[in-house]
Design a protein around this nucleic acid. Structure first.
Length: 299
DNA sequence: AGACAGGAGCAGT
DNA sequence: ACTGCTCCTGTC
């Protein structure tokens, strides 16, 4: 199936730390979306999608990939300052996915103090051992859907530790039990206002402000959510407050909530991606110094 | 070898 | 409200 879209960066979008079930195979990307195996490949003018079975309607995939969004209009709402424009220019094909809230919630509980590859491993183990098998092309290795809240809740803490969750195991187990029991009702949160939804998520074990905001942004499409992790904090400090010696978390949060406009969540993802690619841990030196700009800044 | 990685939760101030 | 410590585990 051909899906027309301009300038969609599959790697940055699928492998950039917002989703954890995609892997690159021979220049294509394979993953499982809502229990459906799919392979994506960039082709001139858009994307080529392949499923394991006949698909009468591809709307679920268009929705997941957010192909209906007017990217140029979104980009036009970003603040015209140099850091933001630089972050966009560094990776203009990056998009925000519309993921399942539960999968998103469970995945980001796993994410704390872990690197992307390790989160991918935990999610793969959880899926392979607890999720339902899904249809795959002939000869392809078996794949599994992401496990339901009930499936995770039915596993013991030791089992989850066996999936390499470590101290996150009791967090995920507790959250799965609550969600499986219907409180909070993750579907009902779609209708809730942002503070209410955030509060409900943060009431779950293993879910603080940062993970709640990730779920609100990646799972619920709430563009006012602006998750501040170590990377985003790093990029905000270095690009927007290079001279501030100390910067209160409260002030940083206020800035993030007011500076980036109606599509702040999108802006956050661009800054995050920029930080991960261009701001290594050792890059303490440059910032206000124009001679030591990061690569790709054109100076 | 020790520090650290896309944090949360807790106690102490 | 902020700081500092602990919680698994692999990696550099």
């Amino acid at each position: 199936m051909f899906l027309p879209v301009a300038g969609y960066d599959l790697k940055a979008t699928l492998d950039g730390g917002q989703a954890f079930r995609w892997h690159g195979v021979d220049g294509a990307w394979e993953g499982v979306v809502q229990g459906r195996w799919v392979r994506l490949r960039a082709v001139p003018g858009g994307l080529e999608a392949q499923a394991a079975q006949a698909v009468p309607d591809w709307e679920w995939l268009r929705h997941y990939l957010a192909l209906d969004e007017d990217w140029e209009a979104i980009r036009a709402t970003f603040p015209p300052d140099e850091p933001m424009q630089r972050a966009v220019a560094a990776c203009p094909g990056l998009r925000l996915l519309r993921q399942d809230p539960w999968e998103c919630l469970a995945s980001f509980i796993c994410s704390s103090t872990k690197q992307v590859v390790q989160i991918q491993e935990m999610v793969a183990l959880l899926s392979g051992r607890l999720g339902d098998p899904v249809a795959v092309p002939p000869g392809h290795r078996v794949e599994h859907a992401f496990p339901s809240p009930a499936q995770v809740a039915g596993a013991g803490e030791a089992f989850l530790r066996g999936c390499k969750l470590g101290f996150r195991a009791p967090y995920l187990l507790g959250t799965a039990r609550q969600v499986a029991g219907g409180r909070p009702d993750l579907e009902a949160l779609r209708q809730a206002d942002l503070p209410t939804a955030r509060e409900a998520l943060m009431s779950l074990p293993g879910v603080g402000r940062k993970i709640a905001d990730c779920v609100l942004l990646f799972g619920y499409g709430r563009q006012q959510a602006f998750p501040v992790d170590v990377w985003v904090e790093r990029v905000l400090r270095r690009l927007y407050f290079p001279r501030a010696r100390r910067l209160a978390p409260r002030r940083l949060r206020h800035f993030s909530e007011t500076h980036f406009g109606p599509w702040a969540g999108y802006a956050q993802q661009y800054l995050f991606h920029y930080a991960r690619v261009h701001l290594g841990r050792g890059a303490e030196r440059w910032s206000a110094d124009s001679r030591t700009r990061p690569p790709g800044s054109g100076a």
